[in-house]
Design a protein around this nucleic acid. Structure first.
Lengths: 82, 82
DNA sequence: AGTAATTTGTTCGTATGTATC
DNA sequence: AGATACATACGAACAAATTAC
């Protein structure tokens, strides 16, 4: 089970906490084929704002874990695509 | 006469102002049978963006004043339909 | 029957304003 | 002053269903 809550009192920024959470969920095998939930959906799911979600996704994209197709969605990078 | 302008300097969000305007116009008897103007039309009429229009329509839909048929249009809820 | 236009649905990109720490 | 964060807002692009011709 992965924690979907953000601790606003934590010294760890919310966008970092979200990146950690998404990294775990991806590692656990969520969204193997299709796209991740949309920014708006993640906003609602985690109770956070838009730019926080976008920052988290950018972290994962910089790590090569996901890639974003504009106006399509964000996808998990397949291993045979590395 | 119903005001069709959005005051961008108002603390009231544009989508709320639009919802108020549409609610008044519906109450005044506009669009008794047919659908409301399309999103694109309302964008032009009020000089606002797409998501602002959609948020306003969602407010009215949540209030039960209108209902949207996907890819058809948004209709005023008839009283004998309540 | 078939193609183009219309319309809503969805999504990311970007910008601004405000508040907080 | 700067980083973080939320809300609002416009734009652009594409999908999918419906309608018009």
């Amino acid at each position: 089970m992965t924690d979907r809550r953000i601790d606003v009192r934590s010294p760890v920024p919310a966008y970092q906490q979200l990146a950690d959470s998404l990294r775990q969920r991806i590692g656990a095998g969520e969204w193997p084929t299709g796209p991740l939930p949309s920014i708006e959906h993640l906003q609602g799911e985690y109770g956070i704002g838009r730019d926080t979600v976008m920052r988290a996704i950018k972290i994962l994209a910089d790590e090569g874990i996901v890639y974003t197709i504009p106006r399509r969605g964000t996808y998990v990078t397949r291993k045979d695509h590395e």
